[in-house]
């Protein structure tokens, strides 16, 4: 195996054009290689020391998160916690303190697992992924990023360089919850993220989006009936969200849960995510991660 360390994005792109694959924290690569799922690439370029990829920048259009920003950075960043709370909820649940220090948001996205915790939050927050190669730079909606388990639309020579989150509308809130059997080193049995925006006056719903984790070959969005807009966020509406989420789910049965259980419980998770997003949109303080404040999962 050939190993090089890139100091700049351009160096990384040249290495990738010559066939190298990028490595940041490397947890997914190392574990997959040892489990025999996929050998380490012939040539690797380390991208974890490129300053431009480790930055978070905010302006009036929103936030730009460098692809090598770690989950540990995201879970405590004041702007993420305040405005993009579902992403902080998810980052704080990933693995353990060690995994969160080495694991990056870009690595999470490019690994393309349908069980990734940060995926559903990025979908409901309308994230866009910046992909760069020597030839071009493009942005795509995160909801169009994944095509199957471990599969994305990114070409082999494209480097994920940033995630772009648009500025949040006033009176917006978001949240992410997952069902878990233990509190650390866990993979979501199912999960759900919701984003809610309320009308400027009163607590009527102006916009809502919901996305689901680990119930389909990719992270999926839930279509919420249009009649929901303009209505109060009450039990009836939350019940409809739960039904819509369960109907959208196409889960598999595996060692972690049966398809039937996943289909039911993802509705419960979507309901809780939406209720918490609503509370946050109204200005209630609901601590991060939501799994802990909502008492979901292992005690």
């Amino acid at each position: 195996m050939r190993f090089t360390k890139a100091e700049t994005v351009e160096e990384a792109l040249h290495a990738m054009a010559a066939g190298a694959r990028p490595i940041a924290g490397g947890s997914d690569l190392m574990v997959a290689a040892r489990q025999g799922k996929s050998p380490l690439p012939e040539s690797i370029v380390a991208i974890d020391r490129i300053p431009a990829l480790s930055r978070m920048d905010a302006d009036e259009r929103g936030m730009r998160i460098g692809a090598a920003v770690s989950h540990a950075q995201l879970e405590v960043d004041p702007r993420i916690v305040a405005d993009y709370t579902a992403l902080a909820d998810a980052a704080a649940l990933v693995g353990s303190p060690a995994t969160r220090h080495v694991g990056t948001i870009g690595g999470n996205i490019m690994n393309s697992s349908p069980a990734m915790d940060t995926g559903a939050p990025l979908v409901v927050l309308d994230g866009r992924v910046e992909l760069r190669s020597l030839d071009r730079t493009r942005q795509i909606d995160i909801s169009e990023m994944w095509t199957g388990p471990g599969q994305s639309v990114a070409a082999v020579d494209e480097l994920c360089t940033a995630i772009l989150l648009p500025e949040r509308a006033p009176r917006s809130g978001s949240g992410y919850v997952r069902l878990e059997y233990r509190r650390a080193m866990e993979i979501a049995v199912v999960g759900a993220a919701a984003s809610v925006t309320l009308a400027p006056d009163g607590d009527l719903l102006a916009a809502i989006s919901v996305a689901l984790t680990a119930v389909a070959p990719t992270i999926v969005s839930v279509e919420i009936p249009k009649e929901a807009i303009g209505r109060p966020v009450d039990d009836d509406l939350l019940d409809r969200i739960a039904v819509a989420a369960s109907e959208r789910a196409q889960p598999i049965s595996d060692v972690r849960a049966s398809a039937r259980y996943r289909k039911h419980i993802v509705g419960v998770m979507a309901r809780r995510a939406a209720a918490s997003a609503f509370g946050r949109a109204r200005g209630e303080t609901i601590g991060v991660p939501l799994n802990r404040t909502a008492g979901i999962g292992a005690p």
């Binding site: 190993f3 360390k5 490595i23 924290g25 490397g26 947890s27 190392m30 574990v31 040892r34 690797i44 380390a46 974890d48 020391r49 540990a72 303190p97 060690a98 995994t99 220090h101 080495v102």
Partner: peptide
């Protein structure tokens, strides 16, 4: 100063 699972980290990446 940050905790890392050394089983799943490439040794060459720890240079510096």
């Amino acid at each position: 100063g940050r905790p890392v699972n050394s089983c799943s980290y490439l040794a060459v990446q720890a240079q510096g």
